Deep mutational scan, measured.
Amino acid sequence: GAYRMKIYDRDELRGQMSELTDDCISVQDRFHLTEIHSLNVLEGSWILYEMPNYRGRQYLLRPGEYRRFLDWGAPNAKVGSLRRVMD
């Protein structure tokens, strides 16, 4: 299947937008971000990790809009890595 997600540095799907279609071992290295404040999962399911290298707390992201970090259940906006959930 296809995988696509848009990430934003501000809440409510605002601010600088970056797009992912594959795994990202370090959000900071690739996008120069340490925080993601909202996101829109367009295709596929993903796991968001608090730390790089797929470590730390993890949150399942199904397709849909997440307008603030509380929407995916996190206590803050800190994001380290993102990985696709393969079928």
Rank of each mutant, 00 (worst) to 15 (best):
L20Y: 03
R62L: 05
F69V: 13
V85A: 10
Y59A: 07
R10Q: 10
Q16M: 09
F69L: 05
R14P: 03
L13K: 15
L82M: 15
R55W: 04
S18F: 09
N76A: 12
R67D: 15
P52N: 05
G1P: 04
G64D: 05
N76D: 09
L70G: 09
R55F: 14
R57K: 10
A2V: 11
Y59G: 02
P75F: 06
R62T: 08
Y3Q: 15
R62Q: 13
A74I: 00
G15V: 05
G15T: 08
R55T: 10
S38P: 02
N53L: 06
V85M: 15
F31M: 10
P63E: 08
G56S: 01
V85H: 05
W46M: 01
N53G: 07
E43C: 10
Y66T: 02
Y8C: 14
N40G: 11
R4F: 15
S45T: 06
V27D: 01
L39V: 06
D11E: 15
R84K: 12
R84Y: 15
E12M: 07
L13S: 15
T21F: 13
E65S: 05
Q28H: 10
E19I: 04
T21L: 08
N40M: 04
G15R: 04
E50Y: 02
S81V: 00
F69R: 13
F69G: 14
W46V: 01
G64L: 02
D29Q: 15
G73Q: 12
R57V: 04
E43P: 02
I25T: 13
E43H: 12
R14I: 11
M86L: 13
Q16Y: 07
Y54T: 01
R14M: 07
D71V: 05
Q58M: 04
D71G: 10
L39W: 02
G15D: 14
I25N: 07
R4W: 10
R67G: 10
S81C: 08
R83I: 06
Y49R: 01
Y49C: 03
W46Y: 11
K6C: 04
R62F: 05
L13V: 14
Q16S: 08
E19C: 07
E43S: 08
L20G: 03
R84D: 14
H32I: 12
D71A: 03
D22Q: 14
E65L: 12
V41Q: 00
I7N: 01
M86R: 14
V85C: 05
M86A: 10
Q28C: 11
P52K: 12
F31H: 11
D87K: 15
L39D: 00
G1M: 13
D71Y: 05
L20C: 11
H37L: 05
V79H: 03
S26C: 09
Q28V: 09
C24A: 15
K78E: 06
R55E: 07
R4K: 14
M17K: 13
R30M: 11
S45D: 14
L33W: 08
Y66S: 03
W46S: 01
G56T: 00
Y66V: 00
C24F: 05
E35R: 08
G1T: 09
W72T: 01
W46A: 01
G64R: 04
D9F: 12
Q16C: 11
R30I: 11
P63R: 07
E50V: 01
M51F: 10
L60M: 13
G15Q: 10
M51H: 09
L13R: 14
Q16K: 12
E35A: 08
S26L: 10
E65F: 06
D23W: 02
V27T: 13
I36K: 01
Y8L: 02
N53V: 02
V85D: 14
P75H: 13
V79E: 01
F31R: 14
N40S: 11
I25L: 10
E65T: 06
Q28N: 09
E12R: 07
S26N: 06
A74C: 13
T21N: 09
Y59E: 07
E43Q: 06
L82P: 01
H37R: 06
D11S: 09
M5N: 03
G73D: 14
A2W: 09
M51T: 05
G56A: 01
R55C: 10
R83W: 02
S45P: 14
D22F: 06
G64S: 03
A77I: 05
Y66A: 03
L20E: 13
R10I: 04
N40C: 09
I47E: 08
Y54M: 08
L42S: 11
L61F: 02
R84Q: 12
G15S: 15
W46G: 00
I25E: 09
Q16P: 09
E65K: 11
R68L: 11
A2N: 15
T34L: 08
R14T: 08
R67V: 07
N76Q: 04
V41M: 02
L82H: 01
S38L: 00
D22H: 09
S45G: 09
R30G: 11
V85K: 13
H32A: 05
M17A: 11
R68K: 11
R67H: 06
G44Q: 02
L33F: 08
S38E: 01
V85P: 03
S18E: 08
D9G: 10
D9E: 11
R30N: 07
R57D: 05
E12S: 09
D9Q: 08
R68M: 12
Y59I: 13
S18W: 13
G73W: 11
Y59R: 07
L39M: 05
Y59H: 03
N53R: 05
G80E: 01
P63H: 03
R83S: 11
A2C: 14
E19A: 04
R67K: 12
D87S: 05
D9K: 15
E65G: 03
P63N: 05
S38T: 01
Y54V: 01
G56P: 01
R30E: 07
S18I: 12
G15I: 04
Y8F: 05
P63Y: 03
W72M: 01
F31V: 14
G73Y: 03
R4Q: 13
F31A: 15
M51I: 03
N76E: 08
N76V: 10
P63F: 03
I36T: 13
T34C: 14
E35T: 11
L42Q: 13
R4C: 14
Q58D: 13
M86H: 14
A74Y: 01
W72G: 02
P52G: 04
V79P: 02
W72S: 01
E65Q: 09
R62K: 12
R14A: 10
L42W: 10
Q28S: 05
G80H: 02
P75M: 09
S18N: 10
G56C: 00
H32N: 12
E65I: 15
R57N: 07
A2F: 15
Q16I: 09
G64V: 03
R57G: 05
H37K: 10
N53A: 06
L20I: 14
K6P: 00
D23S: 12
D22M: 13
H37D: 12
M17G: 08
V41P: 01
E43D: 10
E35G: 10
P75W: 05
L13T: 15
D71K: 10
K6I: 04
M51V: 02
R83E: 13
L48T: 01
D22A: 09
G1E: 13
S26K: 15
Q58G: 05
R68H: 10
W46P: 01
L48Q: 01
K78W: 05
H32T: 10
L61W: 02
H37E: 10
G80R: 05
V27S: 15
N53W: 07
R62P: 07
Q28P: 11
D29G: 11
Y66P: 01
Y59T: 04
P75T: 09
Q58S: 08
R55G: 09
